[in-house]
Amino acid sequence: MPQKRILPYIILGLLQERPLTGKEITAQFQNEIGEFWKASHSQIYPELMRMQHDNWLKITENDSDGRKKHYQITVTGEQVLSNWIKEPVTELPLNRDLFSLKLFFVTKSDSKVIEKLFNDQIALISAQL
């Protein structure tokens, strides 16, 4: 099952304060948001286009020559963001699931390493509670 895209919700959250340019949104991922979520220029701009198509945001041109586009959250986008925030968080924040990867490569079902992997994983999760 594909993982739910989180990037649009982050962008909506950034836009709830004020309209931003694509460059300003990208900069947020190098500053504040970058501490806990990564996104590149090449991910952000296609997502902005999808979000505009879905009516989650609109584009306004604030530059005198019309070249600087500002993205602004719509009422629909505000509702989408609100609904997402209300959804319960059901998974621990794991960037890469090394536990499952290692378990995948264990070839003998009675291997002692399986017990160690599980005990280590339980300890890791318990420490984060």
Rank of each mutant, 00 (worst) to 15 (best):
L98Y: 12
L98C: 04
H53C: 02
G22I: 00
D97V: 04
I6N: 04
V106E: 07
G13H: 01
L124T: 07
K38E: 12
E17K: 15
F36K: 07
D65G: 04
D110Y: 11
S64T: 06
N119K: 15
Y71D: 00
Q30Y: 15
Q43R: 14
K68E: 13
Q121M: 06
I44W: 02
K68H: 04
L7P: 02
I122G: 06
D54V: 00
S111L: 00
A123E: 09
D110C: 10
Q128H: 06
L94D: 03
L7Y: 05
L101K: 11
E87R: 08
I73E: 06
A39R: 02
S111M: 01
V89Q: 04
T26V: 15
K112I: 12
H41I: 02
S100W: 00
T60L: 13
Q16A: 09
F36N: 11
K69D: 06
I85N: 11
F99P: 01
P93F: 06
D54A: 10
Q30W: 14
H53L: 10
A27G: 05
P88R: 11
D97I: 05
K86F: 07
A27E: 15
P88N: 09
N55C: 07
A123L: 03
G34N: 05
W56D: 08
K58A: 09
Q16P: 01
D120E: 14
L98K: 10
W56G: 01
Q79D: 13
F29P: 00
I59G: 01
A123G: 01
N95V: 14
K102G: 05
R50P: 02
L98I: 13
L117I: 08
S126Y: 11
M51G: 07
E91N: 11
E87L: 06
K112A: 15
F36G: 11
F105E: 14
E32Q: 07
Q79S: 12
L117H: 13
N31P: 00
S82F: 07
G34M: 04
L94S: 06
L20I: 03
K58H: 12
V75G: 13
E35W: 14
V106Q: 10
N119H: 10
Q3A: 03
E115H: 05
Q43F: 10
L94M: 09
K23L: 11
G66S: 07
K108P: 03
R18N: 09
Q3S: 08
Q79T: 14
N95T: 15
I11R: 02
Q30D: 15
L57T: 08
Q72K: 12
S82G: 05
P88T: 09
E17P: 01
P8F: 04
L101R: 12
R67F: 11
L15N: 07
M51E: 09
K108Y: 12
A123M: 03
R50Q: 14
T90Q: 15
R50S: 14
I11W: 05
Y71F: 15
R50T: 14
L14Y: 01
P93S: 05
R67Q: 13
K38W: 09
L103R: 13
K116V: 12
Y71Q: 04
R67P: 00
R96G: 07
G13N: 08
I10W: 09
W56M: 11
E24P: 02
R5Q: 13
H70T: 01
L92S: 05
E61S: 10
